[in-house]
Amino acid sequence: MTTAIDTGRPSASARSGLRQVGASDLEVFPLAISGNVFGWTADVVSTNAILDEYAAGGGNFVDTADSYAAGRSEIMVGNWMRDRRNRPEMVVATKVGKSADNPGLSARALTASVHASLERLRTGYIDLLYLHVDDESVPFEETLYAVDELIRAGKVRYFGVSDHTGNRLIEARIASGQMGIAPMVALQNQYNLLHRGEYEGDLARVADRQGLGVMPRFALASGFLTGKYRSRSDIAKNERGAEAAKYLSRKGLKVLATLDRIAQSHGVAVATVALAWLLSKPNVVAPVASASRAAQVGDLVAAATLPLTRAQIAELDKVSA
């Protein structure tokens, strides 16, 4: 059972444009800002500027992990919320399972990880906790019981999983039902115009049957779907270009050309269209995207209000198939 926490957060009726995460009462902006660059390529000044810009655009959903920059990302998010005094307004998602200090999802490791994250985030509760890995060395029941205890204690509100197969989602739902504990409400897996197969098969069907809120990660294909990588020289000029190199293909360039045309017709950025395509898909609540500069944030949040036509969605479906 979920322990009620009075967060002081306004209801959906008071804030337009928010989406509900699965069967939870979490109400989030349709674009989660990723903290994966905080403490890595984004320093404190840049991180604060990015988060300020995101919040100014209506954003309230921050996605981080205890393993991002060895915990520095959580520290920077926590410090920002403390300095802005806006914790009640924010929905904070973090992930555990990959940290060097508490690897894996044993009850001991998971509990220690959550307590460490709470301290770094300077908060008494985590809104959405993701199991960052599928740790098959630990019985699912042990992990789920540990999560449920954290929920009962008020330290976690809801939980979801990242990078689990459809079969494992089914196992988790059955186990939760048998044990009478809190079920998961969210799924985070890689999903974008150039990486569709992993999600659109069994995972999409299971997510739909279980009513999970889907938060696609790598929503912009490591930056390729922003349009900034169109040649080998573009990749060589950027320190993160190697991650996008695998998409620089005939198919990738055809997808970019289609995005270019649609973006031009709406007067928006290529990245905005790529994210809006994800938001048109069933059960997708909020793609997770990162910005290395505050100036990039506007193009991300604009996806929440971009009305793609059925024809444009179909065109993107076809070129990316």
Score class of each variant (00 low, 15 high):
residue 1 M to R: 15
residue 5 I to D: 00
residue 6 D to R: 14
residue 7 T to H: 12
residue 11 S to P: 15
residue 11 S to E: 13
residue 14 A to T: 07
residue 19 R to L: 12
residue 22 G to L: 03
residue 24 S to M: 09
residue 25 D to K: 11
residue 26 L to F: 06
residue 33 I to P: 01
residue 35 G to D: 08
residue 35 G to Y: 04
residue 39 G to I: 13
residue 42 A to R: 09
residue 47 T to G: 04
residue 48 N to Y: 13
residue 50 I to A: 05
residue 52 D to M: 11
residue 54 Y to S: 04
residue 55 A to M: 11
residue 58 G to I: 01
residue 59 G to F: 13
residue 60 N to G: 11
residue 61 F to N: 00
residue 62 V to L: 15
residue 64 T to V: 10
residue 64 T to M: 11
residue 67 S to M: 08
residue 67 S to Y: 06
residue 68 Y to E: 05
residue 68 Y to G: 05
residue 79 N to R: 15
residue 79 N to E: 15
residue 82 R to F: 09
residue 84 R to M: 11
residue 88 P to W: 12
residue 88 P to A: 15
residue 90 M to E: 00
residue 90 M to L: 14
residue 91 V to F: 09
residue 91 V to R: 00
residue 96 V to P: 03
residue 102 N to C: 05
residue 105 L to Q: 03
residue 105 L to H: 09
residue 106 S to T: 14
residue 106 S to H: 06
residue 107 A to D: 07
residue 108 R to I: 04
residue 109 A to K: 01
residue 118 L to C: 12
residue 119 E to R: 12
residue 122 R to M: 14
residue 122 R to E: 14
residue 123 T to P: 01
residue 128 L to E: 00
residue 134 D to E: 12
residue 137 S to E: 14
residue 142 E to I: 02
residue 143 T to L: 10
residue 149 E to K: 12
residue 152 R to G: 04
residue 153 A to C: 07
residue 153 A to V: 07
residue 158 Y to F: 14
residue 159 F to Q: 00
residue 163 D to I: 08
residue 165 T to L: 09
residue 166 G to E: 03
residue 167 N to K: 11
residue 168 R to C: 09
residue 171 E to S: 06
residue 173 R to H: 13
residue 174 I to C: 13
residue 178 Q to F: 13
residue 180 G to D: 10
residue 181 I to M: 07
residue 187 L to P: 12
residue 187 L to K: 02
residue 189 N to A: 04
residue 190 Q to F: 00
residue 192 N to Y: 02
residue 195 H to R: 15
residue 197 G to K: 13
residue 203 L to H: 06
residue 203 L to I: 11
residue 204 A to G: 08
residue 207 A to N: 03
residue 209 R to A: 14
residue 214 V to R: 02
residue 217 R to D: 00
residue 217 R to M: 10
residue 217 R to C: 10
residue 220 L to T: 06
residue 221 A to T: 08
residue 221 A to N: 03
residue 222 S to W: 00
residue 223 G to A: 07
residue 224 F to V: 08
residue 229 Y to R: 10
residue 231 S to Y: 07
residue 234 D to P: 00
residue 237 K to R: 14
residue 244 A to Q: 06
residue 244 A to I: 04
residue 249 S to T: 15
residue 255 V to S: 10
residue 255 V to N: 09
residue 259 L to P: 05
residue 261 R to S: 13
residue 262 I to M: 11
residue 262 I to Q: 01
residue 266 H to T: 10
residue 268 V to A: 03
residue 268 V to R: 10
residue 271 A to M: 12
residue 271 A to C: 14
residue 274 A to N: 05
residue 274 A to P: 02
residue 278 L to A: 08
residue 283 N to K: 10
residue 286 A to Y: 05
residue 289 A to G: 09
residue 292 S to G: 07
residue 292 S to K: 15
residue 295 A to L: 11
residue 297 V to F: 04
residue 301 V to L: 06
residue 306 L to H: 05
residue 307 P to V: 01
residue 308 L to H: 06
residue 312 Q to G: 07
residue 313 I to Q: 05
residue 313 I to N: 01
residue 316 L to P: 04
residue 317 D to N: 14
residue 317 D to C: 11
residue 319 V to I: 13
